[in-house]
Design a protein around this nucleic acid. Structure first.
Lengths: 189, 189
DNA sequence: TCCATCGATGAGACCGTGTCTCATCACCGT
DNA sequence: ACGGTGATGAGACACGGTCTCATCGATGGA
């Protein structure tokens, strides 16, 4: 793996973020992204299925980590404890580089519906994965859906605050968000 | 408004649903859809912004109705009561034709990620709209987010059951789903 | 040292989506 | 009849995304 100049994939991610931010997503062509990374269009599509995906490269990992963390929780854990375990486990994915990219990614994604759409899809995938784990553990349909919603909401709120440089660790922020959301949920009338 | 053969837009919707179901979404071209509707590719794109949109033609109306219904609720209504009012008001959108198309649409959308993605986006839009109304009415950030999630979840579950031919009226089904979800939410631990 | 292999890349043809411009045609009011 | 208006058709165009074939660079073995 990785001959010639290594890290082609990473170079493509960086080139995409930079160009989409500099010139706008629409007015940037895939060929331009590839060129900035020292590659060609064909190679871009060998690393990513489409023009939007480099911006969301880390997300499948997040889904996997959330699911793994949830599956690793003790058998007698309540749904909310399972979600907490999932959030804690996901902490592993959050490197310094991810934190730096966070705000820039949010800004770029916010500029174009096509990107918002992909973000919504990834989020729905996350929610679905988490809900499936909860159902497998015996939670009711409705309970699984709500707990998953709260977990993913906390996941994103925590990440946003963390990548804005707030708080000590991501894990603490996410847990705090989850507590807040849970309190609001039980108080709902 | 509608000269020549009237209802060009509706004919396009029907042609799209039929062809996407018959031949698959991928292997159907926009030109084919337009041709079945007795039109051309250029006219298709005058009625819809892209190939996916005819399948989701009714959804903006749903968002508007939910928002209107929520805004019409009495000033002292609780978040959940606001959501209930929104669901009741949305009932207006559900014609017999919508019910017939429901299962077919679900089936087609389920066959292709590109369509699932659009569905997730529409749903996120719905949730965002509802949450915004709730925040404007003074609900807290977290409360608005959760109430909106429950509302949209109930909206979709209700619609699925209703379009499967279940239950008396859509309004009753959606209210029932909302009650179930609310019960699960308050019982969450 | 040389060579065969294998995986990553480049080159370029190709189809479909989505945009745009210009011409056409049907309806409408006068 | 006649001109205006708005929906449509025709066709060129750029770009996204797929595919095939050729190339090249590193590796491992004789």
């Amino acid at each position: 793996m990785a001959r010639w100049e290594p890290d082609a994939r990473l170079r493509l991610v960086r080139a995409a973020i930079d160009l989409y931010a500099e010139q706008g997503y629409e007015s940037t062509t895939v060929a331009q992204v590839a060129e900035r990374a020292g590659l060609t269009k064909a190679t871009f599509f060998r690393h990513f299925p489409d023009k939007r995906e480099p911006l969301f490269a880390g997300q499948e990992e997040h889904a996997a980590l959330l699911a793994d963390g949830a599956a690793l929780a003790p058998d007698d854990a309540s749904p909310l404890e399972v979600v907490t375990a999932a959030l804690d486990h996901a902490t592993a994915a959050f490197t310094a580089e991810q934190r730096d990219w966070g705000p820039r990614l949010r800004a770029v994604v916010g500029t174009h519906d096509e990107l918002r759409e992909r973000a919504a899809f990834k989020r729905a995938h996350l929610t679905g994965t988490l809900a499936a784990v909860l159902r497998d553990r015996g939670a009711g349909e409705a309970t699984a859906a709500i707990a998953a919603d709260l977990g993913v909401e906390a996941f994103h709120r925590g990440f946003d605050r963390w990548s804005d440089g707030e708080g000590p660790s991501y894990g603490d922020l996410a847990r705090e968000e989850l507590r807040t959301l849970h309190a609001a949920a039980t108080a709902l009338r």
